[in-house]
Design a protein around this nucleic acid. Structure first.
Length: 717
DNA sequence: TGTGAAATAATTTTT
DNA sequence: TTATTTCACA
């Protein structure tokens, strides 16, 4: 206590009573039920500051969140609050923390020479490879659906055996049950960990290795978890291992904002917290500092339709506020144009800035129309999420080269680049190598190496064992050239040349820039792709400046943190376009919720989980919750929580938009307003006319911007 | 093995 | 509608 006078004073009086209680209860388990906008991040950051003030060493403090964005924000706010004292505090995502532990403990995990991280596309490629091995035509199946089941099993922390015992008997369940152990085995052989493994393997390690558990649970003596409602079983166990010894764990969450059930998150963990940690202190934060009363009333009204929730009601001391704007547009394009135009008007007449505004939608594909409208309106915008820079083909290929140079056992990367750019190593050659690898139980890369050094593949009769796949001289030369290339790259990357330069020379030697130039359909496209490649070099350069010459660290950061580059690139004063999922944790003065239509906000995949076979005829009855389809009662709770998350992002103005028609691919289909709109009391809303400008002629892109300008002139007269 | 035309699948949310 | 993928042919 005396210390408080010695160091800069933490202003605990800036907190309300429950916040203060959550912040100052340093020891023992604490559960903070934090409604939207109730100062959740504030509690975490003040708590960190308070622990530091009490003399807890920064290295012993750990705060975990789910997204890089959230972790970054924690970092920013902690730095602001405590300055350099906070540098040693670990503020991380679950996956980054898992990675840190896996890297430190790589020997105990059996990866003495390191490991690669597999992202979604690597995972898919792995499953495809396995399907081929069991002679299943991967075109006949939705590979994602298989991978999804495997991933879900891992998230639920089920071993292959447990999953096999408990899986359903659908076609996909059987395939997934068959492939799960094979998949794990393959990753093992490739010296790779996928996203799920970063958690699961860490848990297994902490489970079996007392020494490791001891190390890590004493390393972090004070734990905080953000968005606790999003933890899945594996993550829960992870936490449990880390804090079992000291029980200094504070979790912050809101069951009403649980929107990752599909990823295995169990909001039930919030309810179980008390049971797992008897004597836990429970703090409820219900005062909202973000939104106007109308917005909160709407949010409360919608979420009240959910059963199975912690009863709580957001309130605010704020008095005034505008009604919610209810907008029905003709079609998706009209909706997008309305949004763009309205933002323009808000900026011109009411002093808002584009960066005050966000457009929230259910699925990424909705972003396209919005982007077009923003461009037509000359508004700068940034799209959060979506397909990231690093998903681009040329980038993925380049990264595969880098990964391969570091981790030759990474068969997926090897297969990806062995004939890219084409160098005369066709499918049959790869198959021969693969057969040889399988027969001798060595990695594919080693099989290729043997093709170079041994005459084994020359067709000369060998005494040892039967011949597996002979390579002709031409193929051998090609394979040799490829291996020389990888060797060359490895030595470049291992030399003292800057990483950026090393990577550039390597990829140029690989012929990637040439390939881009010759395969691009237009010069513009080639230009763009080369620029992307340059962007990769730049981010490599920046990383090297910041964190030193460590390609492995760069690559793993890249896999986990795919979109940190958007931040510095994008224009500063820009409208934010983001999915409802991506918007969680954000707030904006002005929010547009678009596409509030049946089959889009309660998404059709939730409405009709068994596929698109039942469509228009089976219009669900508008009962408050639960739609019967066949015998299954469909739970729309998560969709409703998405609506709730969307509403509560708004501080001042909230627009609820829908289109009367929306075209799927070619055909426009009439749309019904989202049932969630009916759940908002009418008196909170005012209808707004959506003026739908005539369709903009392609040759006159300025027409729309001009129309708005004219309208503005009239308004400001 | 490489190229271009034609067919075809796709649309939930993310570390 | 669009982007990817397949397939026929060189």
């Amino acid at each position: 206590m005396r210390q408080r006078f010695a160091v800069p004073v933490l202003r605990l009086d800036e907190l309300n009573a429950p916040q203060r209680e959550a912040v100052t209860t340093a020891n023992g388990p604490v559960l903070v039920l934090a409604g939207a906008g109730s100062g959740k991040t504030r509690v975490i950051t003040y708590r960190v500051a308070h622990l530091l003030e009490r003399g807890v060493p920064a290295e012993q403090i750990l705060a975990v969140s789910f997204t890089n964005k959230a972790a970054g924000e924690m970092r920013e706010r902690v730095d602001k609050l405590v300055g350099s004292r906070g540098k040693q505090v670990t503020l991380s995502t679950f996956h980054a923390l898992g990675l840190q532990i896996c890297k430190t403990e790589k020997r105990a995990l059996g990866f003495s020479s390191g490991f690669t991280i597999y992202d979604a596309s690597d995972q898919l490629a792995t499953v495809r490879e396995l399907l081929r091995k069991v002679s299943i035509d991967d075109r006949k199946f939705d590979v994602k659906a298989i991978l999804f089941r495997i991933s879900r099993a891992k998230n639920a922390f089920l071993t292959p055996e447990e999953y096999q015992a408990g899986a359903g008997d659908g076609e996909y369940d059987l395939i997934a049950a068959d492939l799960y152990p094979k998949y794990q085995e393959a990753l093992r052989n490739f010296a790779a960990l996928d996203f799920d493994d970063l958690i699961c393997e860490t848990v297994r390690l902490l489970d079996r290795d007392d020494g490791a558990r001891e190390r890590w649970s004493s390393r972090f003596r004070y734990l905080m978890v953000d968005e606790y409602q999003d933890t899945n079983r594996a993550q829960f166990q992870f936490l449990d291992h880390l804090c079992r010894a000291h029980r200094n764990v504070c979790v912050v969450g809101d069951d009403d904002q649980s929107i990752y059930g599909w990823r295995g998150a169990e909001a039930g963990h919030i309810l179980e917290f008390e049971r797992h940690f008897p004597g836990a202190k429970i703090v409820k934060l219900e005062e909202n500092y973000r939104s106007t009363p109308h917005i909160l009333d709407a949010a409360n009204a919608v979420i009240a339709n959910n059963t199975k929730r912690h009863e709580k009601k957001l309130w605010t001391a704020r008095r005034s506020g505008e009604k919610l704007k209810l907008v029905a547009c003709e079609d998706a394009e009209g909706e997008a144009r309305f949004v763009a135009e309205e933002i323009e008007i808000l900026c011109a007449t009411r002093g808002y800035h584009p960066s005050d505004c966000a457009v929230l939608y259910r699925s990424n594909m909705q972003a396209r129309a919005l982007e077009e409208a923003m461009r037509a309106q000359r508004l700068s915008y940034r799209v959060i999420g979506g397909q990231s820079f690093f998903d681009r083909r040329e980038i993925k290929d380049s990264i595969a080269y880098l990964k391969l140079a570091l981790h030759p056992r990474d068969e997926i990367s090897l297969r990806r680049v062995i004939n890219y750019p084409a160098r005369g190593i066709g499918a049959s050659t790869v198959e021969r190598l693969a057969a040889h690898a399988a027969q001798h139980g060595v990695p594919l890369f080693d099989a290729a190496t043997r093709a170079r050094t041994h005459s084994l593949f020359d067709g000369a009769p060998r005494s040892e064992g039967p011949e597996v796949g002979e390579l002709n001289g031409k193929s051998r030369t090609a394979v040799t050239a490829f291996l020389d290339l990888v060797d060359h790259g490895r030595s470049l990357l291992g030399s003292s040349v800057g990483l950026k330069e090393a990577a550039r020379q390597f990829l140029e030697a690989a012929g990637i820039p040439d390939e881009i130039r010759s395969t691009s359909t237009t010069g513009l496209q080639a230009e763009r792709r080369l620029m992307n490649l340059e962007g990769l070099f730049e981010s490599l350069h920046r990383f090297e400046q910041r964190e030193g010459r460590n390609l492995d660290a760069f690559l793993s950061r890249l896999m986990l943190d795919t979109k940190d580059e958007d931040e510095d690139e994008g224009p500063r004063d820009a409208v934010t376009l983001v999915t409802l999922h991506g918007a969680k944790g954000l707030e904006f003065p002005v929010v547009f919720l678009v596409g509030l239509e049946e089959e889009l906000l309660p998404h059709k995949r939730t409405l009709y989980p068994n596929g698109p076979d039942v469509t228009e005829s089976a219009r669900p009855s508008p009962s408050p919750d639960g739609v019967r389809k066949g015998d299954a009662v469909i739970d729309l709770g998560e969709e409703r929580r998405l609506m709730y998350v969307g509403i509560t992002r708004a501080r001042e103005l909230l627009y609820l938009c829908r289109a009367r028609n929306r075209s799927n691919r070619a055909s426009a289909r009439p749309r019904t307003p989202s049932r969630f709109l009916d759940e908002i009391p009418l008196e909170l809303c005012e209808p707004r006319e959506a003026s739908v400008p005539a369709k903009v002629a392609p040759e006159d892109e300025d027409a729309f911007a001009r129309a708005t300008l004219e309208k503005l002139l009239k308004l400001t007269e």
